[in-house]
């Protein structure tokens, strides 16, 4: 374990155990979509576009429908067969994203309509689900949907007796258990939780705490971005001195 994922007391990329990677986020990358976002978490690169809401094709039912299309690019992984979410294939990850969006979005405001969410993983370097969910939320905000909260997600993995936050692909290969939590911080509610692999009850409690802390960090980053975005929008019509903003 020492050589594979650790360099002394630090991880291979120089982070400590409870430090997340640098996040780069951008909204409105796809001008043809009603909302889009791009996220880079270390080397994990994901783009998300949202189309709709538009009239439902199928007439049955009055509830709003969410269609999620999740794909890995053919060049996203080094080795496709060796994927940590092996049995969690594209379809399953799409279902997880749909579940989270259902919790976040005020779906009752979109009767008889459907929303298409397309997530494309350009490069996979671990924490794919958590990064995708962050990306989806940014795109939802960009599209102007009413959501309960800026859902922020984070992943913790267990390798032997250590817990690592925001894991890379290499670390995931060594892991025995994965915990992913999406938090709605201002409601302090959990929008989604997924755990796979084996993890003891005590470790799970510890991992939950670390995960929630990580979510809070991601939340502050997303919130800063949104504040900046709003400032930029207002900036176009600015008539007052900058200090007021």
């Amino acid at each position: 374990m020492q050589k594979v994922v650790l360099d002394g007391n630090k991880r291979l990329d120089g982070r400590s155990f409870q430090q997340i990677r640098h996040l780069y986020m951008q909204q409105g990358v796809n001008s043809r979509a009603s909302g889009s976002a791009y996220i880079e978490s270390g080397n994990t690169k994901i783009i998300c576009s949202i189309f709709g809401p538009r009239q439902r094709k199928k007439k049955s039912g009055v509830k709003g429908q969410i269609n999620v299309d999740f794909r890995f690019c053919s060049f996203a992984n080094k080795d496709e067969t060796l994927h940590k979410y092996a049995s969690l294939n594209e379809k399953n990850i799409a279902f997880q994203i749909e579940q989270t969006v259902r919790t976040t979005l005020k779906i009752e405001l979109l009767p008889k309509s459907e929303v298409d969410i397309c997530v494309l993983v350009l490069q996979d370097d671990g924490s794919v689900l958590a990064s995708s969910l962050n990306c989806v939320v940014l795109a939802l905000v960009d599209a102007g949907f009413e959501i309960f909260d800026l859902v922020s997600s984070c992943q913790v993995i267990k390798i032997q007796n250590e817990l690592f936050i925001d894991s890379t692909y290499k670390e995931e290969e060594e892991s025995t258990g994965i915990v992913m939590i999406s938090l709605m911080p201002s409601l302090s509610e959990i929008a989604h939780i997924l755990q796979t692999g084996e993890i003891s009850q005590l470790d799970m409690i510890e991992a939950t705490k670390i995960c929630l802390d990580g979510c809070a960090v991601v939340y502050s980053l997303i919130k800063d971005l949104e504040k900046l975005q709003v400032k930029r929008q207002i900036g176009c019509f600015r008539a007052l001195p900058t200090e007021l903003f």
Partner: peptide, 23 residues
């Protein structure tokens, strides 16, 4: 008492304080 998987279903969130209780 080892956990092998957790999944969440349903349209509402779960209070983050009650998660550990539930587990």
């Amino acid at each position: 008492s080892n956990l092998f998987g957790i999944r969440k279903y349903g349209n509402d969130g779960i209070e983050s304080s009650s998660l550990i209780e539930i587990i």
